[in-house]
């Protein structure tokens, strides 16, 4: 066992972990943030996607100790302070991009990683950004459309508010 400090969703957690614990298990079992899902457990499906220092990674392929000192962001961090959904989440709902919902947290985070860096992505950029996230329900089109819509909403928010930040709590 090892004592370790993690920064998840801008909160500091000091916990005891097993040396070989995966970041995925830390998030789901130790911190009880169960929005992150486990699908394949081997880097194929993207259900376990989280952001680590702003980059999307498969948390099933990161050991928890490797994430010490990094900023981890999970799906639980996306809704806004006033309790409304993040524009990406809202667009997923409105476009019918969610069926069973198992892939959704990972999809939304892949989309966020894209839009944080590239506010006006092409259709190709969007498809590429979710190419590591499998969805067995929707057929992907609606997801790609939702991301396009979210990009527009975020752009509009940005230009409307001038100084007010988009993004998260």
């Amino acid at each position: 066992m090892r004592k370790a400090v993690f920064n998840v969703n801008n909160k500091e957690y000091t916990v005891e972990i097993e040396e070989d614990l995966r970041l995925l298990d830390l998030i789901r079992n130790t911190l009880n943030l169960t929005g992150t899902k486990e699908g394949c457990g081997e880097g194929e499906c993207g259900a376990c996607s989280v952001l680590m220092d702003g980059e999307v990674v498969n948390s099933c392929l990161v050991l928890a100790f490797q994430a010490e000192g990094k900023k981890i962001e999970t799906i639980e961090n996306l809704d806004r302070e006033d309790g409304t959904l993040h524009p990406i989440q809202q667009a997923f709902l409105e476009e019918g991009a969610i069926q069973c919902g198992f892939c959704t947290p990972g999809m939304v985070l892949s989309a966020k990683a894209l839009l944080d860096k590239n506010p006006a992505p092409s259709k190709h950029d969007i498809r590429e950004s979710i190419s590591g996230n499998l969805c067995r329900c929707t057929g992907y089109n609606k997801i790609a459309e939702a991301i396009e819509k979210a990009a527009e909403t975020l752009e509009k928010e940005e230009s409307d508010s001038g100084t007010a930040r988009r993004g998260t709590k």
């Binding site: 880097g43 999307v56 990674v57 498969n58 392929l61 990161v62 892949s110 950004s129 190419s131």
Partner: peptide, 9 residues
Amino acid sequence: IGSPQIRNR
């Protein structure tokens, strides 16, 4: 190689 998630790591 792989997916964006894999390429990032």
